[in-house]
């Protein structure tokens, strides 16, 4: 618990640093390409196109999901996925890849996974803006339910930070963890309500849907979808699920902080 307080305090104290460092991280990533930051939109766009073709057009033959066109349904959920997957992958590698640069000074290490996750937040906002504009033309106009989006944004960031606090520590000690996380994230894309609606299993295999809901990002993705499609207050309608999500985030954060604080002095020795 004390470790959790320490890490939490560091996040508040150095939030300015998190914001600035994440900007440099973005710059560093964009600098090598001619199109620079534009890739943060182009890459998702290409993936969305192929997923629509395979899952929407190919497999479903353009059949709608609960009265919503597949493309609209997918777009409203997948928009947050890019931040989630990139956040986990970059966050997991963060300490391992940055320690050489950061260890030469008294630097609050717990900020590292946080700023790497936060660096994914800016492209996410850009992408979300574009998706929302597109949605206006597709018939899903601005609605009151948009107001719940910040809750899920914060939830996603909190979950990402808690998880990467654990994985970045483990990946620094045992580098195989990076590979494992990569595989897990690839799997998770298909186990989240992004490309197909798990509800179709609901009648026959309710257990499987319940298990799938243990994935905290299930909550985030569904929340985004309800907000963008204007289908209700997801976090209130499913308040038990909200409770589960936040409890899980807190537990993961406490575990992550304990691990991080225990090992952080020795990160350099592991490399």
């Amino acid at each position: 618990m004390r470790a959790a307080m320490t890490v939490l305090k560091e996040q508040f104290k150095y939030f300015y640093l998190v914001r600035r460092l994440s900007v440099y991280e973005l710059k560093s990533n964009a600098s090598a390409n001619y199109l620079g930051m534009a890739w943060e939109v182009i890459q998702p766009a290409i993936q969305i196109a192929i997923y629509w073709f395979v899952f929407g057009f190919g497999l479903r033959g353009k059949a709608p999901i609960a009265g919503v066109d597949f493309f609209h349904w997918m777009l409203a959920g997948i928009v947050v996925w890019f931040m989630i997957s990139q956040g986990i992958l970059k966050g997991t590698k963060s300490i391992f890849s940055k320690i050489k640069i950061l260890s030469k000074m008294n630097f609050p290490m717990s900020v590292i996974p946080n700023y790497m996750v936060f660096a994914q937040f800016y492209p996410h906002l850009l992408l979300l803006g574009i998706v929302i504009i597109v949605m206006q033309f597709l018939g899903y106009t601005v609605n009151i339910y948009y107001l719940q989006l910040p809750i899920y944004m914060f939830g996603a960031l909190a979950a990402l930070f808690s998880i990467t606090l654990i994985t970045s520590t483990l990946a620094t000690i045992v580098q195989d963890v990076q590979k494992l996380i990569q595989s897990v994230m690839r799997m998770l894309l298909y186990l989240s309500p992004i490309l197909w609606p798990p509800q179709i299993l609901g009648d026959k295999f309710p257990m499987i849907v319940t298990i799938m809901k243990l994935n905290p990002f299930y909550y985030i993705i569904e929340g985004y979808r309800r907000a963008i499609l204007g289908q209700g207050w997801y976090f209130i309608d499913n308040w038990q699920y909200s409770l589960y999500f936040w409890s899980l985030v807190i537990v993961l954060f406490i575990i992550g902080a304990a691990l991080h604080v225990k090992f952080r002095r020795h990160f350099v020795d592991f490399i």
Partner: peptide
Amino acid sequence: GLDRKLSGRENIELKLL
């Protein structure tokens, strides 16, 4: 420990930050 992809100026800012 400099960031190879960033410019010298950006590295200075980053380090000072």
